[in-house]
Amino acid sequence: MSSAAEKAFEELKETVGRVTVDNPKMQAKNVDVFYGDKQAIFDVTCDIGKNEVIAMIGPSGCGKSTFLRCMNRMNDTIPSCRVGGDILLEGDSLYSSSVDPVMLRARVGMVFQKPNPFAKSIYDNVAYGPRIHGLANNRAELDDIVESSLQRAGLFDEVKDRLNAPGTSLSGGQQQRLCIARTIAVNPEVILMDEPCSALDPIATARIEELIDELRENYAIAIVTHSMQQAARVSQRTAYFHLGKLVEVGETKTIFTNPTHELTENYITGRFG
């Protein structure tokens, strides 16, 4: 980082750009995250709108994944992790004592960096969520959920003849679509995606990106990505993170063509990252 950029980062007090939206699904307010004594996220405020895809970009270690994991309380599984500030889902705080993480994660689903199908059949992978949450009343309903989820994930035609094959027998791209199908089978309101394409080849990536665009109709989606091109392709808004701070948020087009902050510009133009 050049010394000028360093200075700009030091001086950064407030996120540049409009952090709120008119029709928010989730709202993060002044979020701080600590791992033990180390602070990973500094005072991040940002909304996620209904039916929009927001991309979170930034150099590695900038805290974008950590921030994402706060939004369905996946960080609860890490004992030393502490979250300050507040995150609201439809106006209700996620971290209030009345909110149940199980309940929350059913509403805010997550797709991970590495495809992580369970050691079960394709069918059972998709049926897992509906089963544990008791979403289907009988086998026929469950079949319907599985089929429609696989269809919406664009995987059904490829696997319909081998629903009983193990999930791990699929290719990497198919596995990731299986994980997406597994997530939408629970019918969440928000889907968080943590670099969903980083382990995939370009063709599989294109397929997933198409899928994300289709899913936008029904869900609010937050996607962390390493690839600026991907962010530009799939998102409506983009948030740029740097060393745990949210530097700039704005319309994707604006961010990529005319960034306001110096750091954002440096990153977009490839001076570091």
Partner: peptide, 15 residues
């Protein structure tokens, strides 16, 4: 058993 598998399950809201 890889942690990612547990994460997948937690992420779906499993206890």
């Amino acid at each position: 058993v890889p942690q990612s598998m547990r994460d997948g399950s937690f992420g779906l809201g499993a206890t």
